[in-house]
């Protein structure tokens, strides 16, 4: 079942085309990662989904309803967390959470308390005294304490520390377990990898790839840095190894994720002293995308 479907969505701000024929689909019970660099059009897409800005062209349907015309009906089943949460300076965090819960209808007091505890939020303080992360927690608590069917999260962890990111990831996993759908936008590939079943990659207002992570494996390369007892030989003959560079005693190179297993087996023959791996970044991914399409490099 499709929860959210975007067909050929365009959005222009004056002469500037922010979205250029975006297609997206989120199915029931899946966590969909929406990734792209800053300014790619993630927030703009999400704002069209929420019916707070109007599409210039194309169709956006959530729960088979039109995102602009039937926004209120749709929002009864949606929870949204923006990347930059702004709240009323002279209301307390607790008051804001209650307001949001009340506006949506439905009330899950015990879930609210549990989340406030988990996120380590002091709901008695005025919003003016909250840091960015704390304001984000207010939005996260009110989102996850609601009984929504679709969670729309726009870079929701940008102000959270790693501990709280963990709590956030648990919340997303719980939602998934309960059969809910999630649209999670991010510009950090590794974050999306941990949580998402499928991802869509947007760049300059266009979706350039969609698919499950394993389908996109061909696009991801892991960066490796190794030091071995005996000098490494014949590395460049292995399949899926790229960009080999020598640094002092170390050797750095990239490996296609699907070839990782055979490359590591090869390395062990030389006695590994040090092995560091870094996950592929979004930039790496774009590189690969344009290489494989033969469309030149990234500008």
């Amino acid at each position: 079942m499709t929860v959210l479907k975007v067909d050929n969505l365009t959005k222009r701000f004056g002469k500037f085309t922010a979205l250029d024929g975006v297609n997206l689909e989120v199915k029931e019970g899946e966590v969909f990662g929406f990734i792209g660099p800053n300014g790619a059009g993630k927030s703009t897409t999400i704002r069209v989904l929420l019916g707070i800005i109007k599409a210039t062209g194309g169709q956006v349907r959530i729960f088979s309803k039109d995102a602009w015309a039937e926004a209120v009906e749709i929002h009864k089943r949606i929870a949204y967390v923006p990347g930059d949460v702004n709240l009323w300076p002279n209301l307390t965090g607790g008051e804001v959470i209650d307001l949001f819960v009340k506006l949506r209808g439905g009330n899950n007091q015990s879930r609210r308390e549990e989340l406030i505890r988990k996120f380590d939020l002091d709901p008695t303080r005025k919003c003016r005294t909250y840091s960015k992360g704390n304001r984000q927690k207010v939005a996260l608590v009110s989102a996850f304490s609601s009984d929504a069917d679709l969670y729309i999260l726009d870079e929701p962890t940008s102000g959270l520390d790693p501990l709280m990111e963990q709590v956030f990831q648990e919340c997303v996993k719980d939602a998934k377990k309960a059969g809910k759908s999630v649209l999670l936008s991010s510009h950090i590939l590794s974050e999306v990898e941990k949580l998402c079943d499928r991802v869509g990659i947007i760049r300059q207002g266009k979706i350039i790839e969609t698919g499950s992570l394993s389908e996109l494996r061909h696009l991801t390369r892991t960066n490796l840095l190794v030091e071995t007892k005996q000098p490494l030989t014949s590395l460049n003959e292995l399949k899926g190894v790229h960009d080999i560079e020598e640094r002092d005693k170390d050797l750095s190179f990239q490996v296609d994720t699907e070839e990782l297993d055979s490359v590591i087996k090869h390395l062990t023959q030389f006695g590994i002293v040090k092995l560091e791996s870094t996950p592929p970044t979004l930039e790496d991914l774009f590189m690969r995308h344009y290489e494989s399409k033969g469309a030149g490099g990234v500008s």
Partner: peptide, 18 residues
């Protein structure tokens, strides 16, 4: 003022009329 500071965005993502 509320809209400019991004506070209406949260409100409008809830079942609240335009």
């Amino acid at each position: 003022a509320d809209e400019e500071d991004g506070r209406i965005e949260m409100i409008r993502s809830l079942p609240v009329g335009r």
